[in-house]
Design a protein around this nucleic acid. Structure first.
Length: 423
RNA sequence: AGAGAGGUGUCCGAGUGGUUGAAGGAGCACGCCUGGAAAGUGUGUAUACUCGUGAGGGUAUCGAGGGUUCGAAUCCCUUCCUCUCUGCCA
């Protein structure tokens, strides 16, 4: 979440940032933050003063008792009872201010980077790069939801039987294609210097708050209510939370982690046109890269991560474009996000397959993720993450773009992983 | 899941109501010693909030939350976690 100090010291910047996101009543909210913080501090000063008085009185009583002066001790005991009541009141007031402040801060999204375009929706995103040719397919080309039936590689009906809509069953070469992609993505990441992590895919509430899924996206996650756990919507959650409440040494930076996890999303209310087949699922696999870096490096690293993801798409020979998300379309916790979209020629659409974001200190503040620099003082690190990559839409694009009349060619880089070159 | 034990600073580990933010040790940092190193020795070694221009203060934190008390790491309650045994199991 945002730091109160940032809001105070850079009020205009923060305000403009929130406005760029079309955040309603931004100015009032920010003023309220400062007001609550001021009240909080004033209450704390008074509370601490009384507490100090109470503490020293208690020490006096202890000293008197040790000297055997019971009566004198009894006498000053009465003094503390009164103070205690006041402290209790101030304590309540203090925690109210603190809680209100926290709740309010939870509602404030991150301040966008200056380069983020303003805009309301996905239509206002800025295309910053395009690569590859959109394939000209033969007459009678099929979208992937037809192809998977034709070649019997992914079965949605079976998934419905086992779980429900949006839980596909991958079969035969479909399953093998998926596994090949996972291995390819992980191997590429390891080559690029990432450390592989296999995290839990159920996480506790603290983790949800740490990366910002809670309270903002409550309802998007599946919940194991009996145990108060959430199924992860992305590997970002467990992997970034590995560093919750951690003070790193500056020399340990950058932290580069990669992990393959299934992801679970309820997607409540987001079904409609354009979500057929693999385009939107309740369960899918994703390889996620996460970095924890020095604040001076985070934008450089964001570019590197973007380049890295693009490299994967190039190796898979998929035409893609890179978008800089506008203020209105960016995730709640992000300061700058690039989306990578591949062109899927069977349905003639761009599909988002990766989202690479710099969160600056927004997550780190919630996570209490810090590092100790030269001056020995802990300071908040910057966190970044990106999909590298999300599986189903990549599968969709591979199937659609590489289809021929009687089969589907596999990308060259995958053949060693697959053990076959065609479906 | 049942029975028992336990959770203290970077780590080990003392501490069952009163100058204990916390003994002692290890580690680490800096200094002394040394030709250099080891050993030895001295000093320092948490985090958050907050007051103060600063030096330097205050408050909180001994898994977490609540309670008893003038005062709690120490007593009580709740909860989480770890370990051992039993059960179950990939």
């Amino acid at each position: 979440m945002l730091l109160v100090n940032t809001i105070r010291d850079h009020f205009e910047t923060v305000l403009e940032g929130l406005q760029k996101r079309n955040f309603p009543h931004a100015e009032a909210a920010l003023h309220q933050v400062l007001e609550l913080d001021k009240n909080r501090k004033e209450t704390q000063v008074e509370r601490d003063r009384l507490q100090a008085e109470s503490n020293s009185t208690s020490k006096e009583i202890g000293a008197l008792l040790r000297e055997g002066k019971k009566e004198e001790a009894e006498k000053i005991k009465s003094r503390t009872t009164e103070i205690k009541e006041q402290i209790k009141l101030l304590e309540d007031t203090y925690s109210n201010y603190e809680e209100d402040l926290k709740q309010l801060l939870y509602t404030l999204p991150n301040v966008p980077h200056y380069s983020v375009p303003s805009g309301k929706s996905a239509d206002d995103n800025e295309i910053v790069f395009e690569h590859g040719e959109i394939p000209e397919l033969f007459e009678g080309k099929l979208p992937h939801w037809e192809l998977i039936k034709k070649y019997d590689i992914i079965d949605f009906d079976l998934g419905v039987k086992i779980a429900g809509a949006g839980f596909p069953v991958y079969k035969g070469r479909g399953a093998r294609l998926q596994r090949a992609l996972i291995n390819f993505f992980l191997d590429e990441a390891i080559k690029a210097g990432f450390i592989e992590i296999q995290p839990p895919i159920l996480v506790n509430e603290d983790s949800g708050y740490g990366t910002g899924q809670l309270p903002d996206k409550e309802g998007q996650m599946y919940e194991a209510t009996a145990d108060k756990l959430y199924l992860i919507p992305t590997g970002e959650v467990p992997i970034t939370n590995l560093y919750r409440d951690v003070i790193l040494n500056e020399v340990e930076l950058p932290i580069m982690n990669v992990g393959h996890t299934p992801c679970f999303r309820r997607e409540a209310g987001s079904w409609g046109a354009h979500v057929r087949g693999l385009n939107r699922l309740h369960q899918f696999d994703k390889v996620e890269i996460v970095q924890v870096v020095h604040p001076d490096k985070s934008y450089e690293v964001l570019e590197e991560m973007s380049q890295y993801v693009q490299g994967l798409l190039q190796k898979l020979e998929l035409p893609y474009r890179v978008l800089r998300l506008c203020g209105g379309d960016m995730g709640f916790t992000s300061a700058l996000t690039y989306d990578m979209e591949v062109y899927s020629a069977g349905q003639d659409r761009w599909l988002e397959v990766s989202s690479v974001s710099n969160f600056e200190t927004y997550q780190a503040n919630r996570l209490k993720l810090r590092f100790r620099g030269e001056d020995k003082k802990p300071q908040l690190a910057h966190t970044l993450n990106g999909s590298a990559l999300a599986l189903p839409r990549i599968v969709a694009a591979i199937l659609e773009n590489n289809q021929i009349e009687d089969g589907i060619n596999m990308p060259k880089v995958l053949i060693p992983y697959l053990g076959f070159d065609m479906i």
